[in-house]
Design a protein around this nucleic acid. Structure first.
Lengths: 166, 166
DNA sequence: TTCCCTGCAAAAGTTTTGCACTACT
DNA sequence: AGTAGTGCAAAACTTTTGCAGGGAA
């Protein structure tokens, strides 16, 4: 069981545990939302969606394509992108742009979280911090805007890379 | 003189005033840093840099190209990108990736700030919030990582678009 | 005079689209 | 059967690079 990080006066930061995604449930949601919109379920869409939900977060289209290829030779890049767009429209996937050029995708629907990205090894740590969420809302009120979403990204060196570099 | 937004218990949010960039000073810095590195000052580099510093924040390469074209027909896209890279290497410009696909550039060297982006009109509001900065540092400590940089982006509707939509 | 810099065009990398064919429902 | 979905290849778009000619130091 992973331990939450130490709390501080600033709020508690919780590192998210992996394997939160219930693939089966996500697939059912996908199918029902396709049906709602009069769209079809196909072998390719299912393969792509299942692989995506199983692998989970922060995958690029390129990686997803490679993984799907392993179980289904017949899938083209276009279908990967079209299915990712479909998943976004079904509110099951969101698209992120970290500092590299290609988009990364992650499962939607769990609690909001933010990201730390290690600039050396590329590791991505997801975390939640309640104070941060509240503070973002407070800032939005002060700016007199309404928020639909927000994101925070921290960049630096993770503990392993830090240890390794001295 | 622009007024700071209302303070809250969460900290004071200050909307940044525009026209902070002293073009002349930035140009001098550019020239001296070129000289330091044994590189040349050229008409194209000067034109691109000057236009960039005058227009300021959040410009894309495409926009910059269009603006520079107005005062110098002879500039190619390649030189725009090469000069932007050079300005980054001289620590005068930083590159940002908001949610669209093309990179945007901004002047470096002022205090750290974050961004609100209006999803309807595309307006970008820069702001500073000291509590947010402290909180990000606290999170980094809890995650046991060191931070080199961080960014926060808020997305939503600005007050004007909000008023207009009801 | 030297070699850095530039423009052009072509290449590279990611994402989208047109089209003929396939396959859900 | 009818219509949406797919694969392939080509296009679109942003950014980078090769190369031959031009210009700053």
């Amino acid at each position: 069981m992973p331990r939450p990080a130490e709390p501080t006066a600033a709020g508690r930061t919780v590192v998210e545990r992996r394997a939160r995604v219930d693939t089966q449930r996500q697939m059912e949601l996908f199918h029902s939302r396709l049906k709602q919109r009069g769209l079809k379920s196909t072998a390719q869409r299912d393969d792509i969606a299942r692989v995506f939900f199983e692998i989970g977060h922060h995958i690029s289209a390129e990686q997803l394509y490679a993984e799907v290829k392993k179980i289904n030779q017949h899938v083209g890049y276009a279908t990967i992108y079209r299915t990712l767009r479909l998943l976004k429209e079904c509110d099951l996937v969101s698209e992120r742009h970290f500092d590299d050029d290609q988009a990364r995708y992650e499962v939607v629907g769990e609690r909001h979280h933010d990201h730390f990205i290690c600039e050396r090894c590329g590791k991505i740590i997801e975390f939640e911090n309640e104070s941060l969420e509240r503070l973002q809302e407070a800032v939005a009120r002060e700016l007199n805007v309404t928020l639909t979403r927000h994101k925070m990204e921290l960049y630096g060196l993770c503990s392993e890379c830090l240890a390794q570099s001295r």
